Simulated assay, not measured.
Amino acid sequence: MRMVEVKQVSKSFGARNNLVRALNNISFTIDRGEFVGVMGPSGAGKTTLLNIMSTIDHPSVGRVYLAGQEITALPERDLATFRRENIGFIFQDFNLLPALSVSENLIMVLSMLKIPREEVQKRLAYYSEHLNLKQLLNRYPNELSIGQKQRVAAARALMTQPKILFADEPTGSLDSKSATELLQYLATINLENETTIMMVTHDAFTASYCNRIVFIKDGAFYSEVVRSGSRQQFFNQIIDMQAAIGGGKISDFRNRD
């Protein structure tokens, strides 16, 4: 089943005489259950693409389909409902509410969806177990490490059991141990629940947890790499493509896994 379809999407910013094209007629698809990374040099349009696909922004031209629904044609009220029911988002800066405990941060979004209390507790137990948060549920964000905050942010995004999970540089502010733990959790959720994940990253080690990498340059599709062997082999392929496309963060696979 095709979960995402991006059709000839372009995005421009600025006025006529000072127009900047962030995306340039880009098209690609993501199937249900894939774990896809998006990579490219700084300024390639990765975050712009992610924002459009996750309904935060709108394209200037083109269409985006999520779970068979053309989101670029939905009015804002319907789009907000679609977003709550189908999309999860892990932000790099966490966006946790400081006045709420970890458990309250996790279940808050479910109250808007009118999920029965028994189901809320079931999901809370499941995701707090999988993301190693059981001992943190009564703490507040200011009592957590950066790695713990990111795991809470990931659990919150998964609590709605979204059809697709978007992640914007989810390991960007984490140390190598916390980053590896988070990526292992995401890979497990992807495998066990067939949650479709699209992740923007500069880092080849982070990208090596994906099944496929889409590379973009100057706002356009450049190439892709599909994992067919070990993570080490996939990592090496990603490094080679980074060298060809220019830009990106070079990682040391051996010292981080």
Rank of each mutant, 00 (worst) to 15 (best):
residue 201 T to C: 08
residue 208 S to T: 08
residue 185 Y to D: 14
residue 208 S to H: 13
residue 210 C to W: 07
residue 210 C to S: 12
residue 220 A to W: 04
residue 226 V to R: 11
residue 211 N to G: 15
residue 197 I to Y: 10
residue 220 A to E: 06
residue 225 V to T: 04
residue 192 E to I: 06
residue 228 S to K: 15
residue 226 V to Y: 11
residue 203 D to F: 06
residue 207 A to G: 07
residue 196 T to V: 02
residue 195 T to A: 00
residue 195 T to I: 04
residue 180 T to N: 14
residue 184 Q to I: 13
residue 210 C to E: 04
residue 182 L to V: 15
residue 223 S to Y: 09
residue 228 S to M: 11
residue 191 L to R: 06
residue 188 T to V: 00
residue 180 T to G: 04
residue 220 A to I: 01
residue 201 T to S: 10
residue 185 Y to G: 09
residue 211 N to M: 09
residue 183 L to E: 14
residue 215 F to K: 02
residue 210 C to K: 03
residue 191 L to V: 02
residue 201 T to Q: 08
residue 219 G to P: 13
residue 217 K to R: 05
residue 192 E to A: 05
residue 208 S to Y: 12
residue 185 Y to F: 15
residue 223 S to K: 10
residue 180 T to K: 15
residue 204 A to L: 12
residue 191 L to Y: 04
residue 198 M to A: 07
residue 187 A to R: 15
residue 203 D to Y: 05
residue 217 K to W: 07
residue 189 I to L: 12
residue 210 C to A: 06
residue 218 D to L: 00
residue 228 S to Q: 15
residue 180 T to P: 03
residue 201 T to F: 08
residue 223 S to V: 05
residue 185 Y to C: 15
residue 192 E to T: 06
residue 201 T to L: 09
residue 202 H to I: 05
residue 205 F to D: 10
residue 207 A to I: 06
residue 219 G to C: 03
residue 209 Y to G: 04
residue 214 V to G: 03
residue 223 S to A: 08
residue 226 V to C: 10
residue 191 L to G: 00
residue 221 F to V: 08
residue 211 N to P: 09
residue 198 M to Q: 05
residue 211 N to S: 13
residue 222 Y to S: 10
residue 191 L to M: 06
residue 220 A to D: 03
residue 216 I to Q: 01
residue 228 S to R: 14
residue 197 I to F: 12
residue 186 L to H: 10
residue 228 S to I: 05
residue 210 C to G: 09
residue 209 Y to L: 01
residue 193 N to T: 10
residue 191 L to K: 07
residue 198 M to S: 05
residue 186 L to C: 11
residue 209 Y to I: 02
residue 193 N to P: 06
residue 216 I to M: 03
residue 216 I to L: 05
residue 209 Y to F: 15
residue 197 I to R: 05
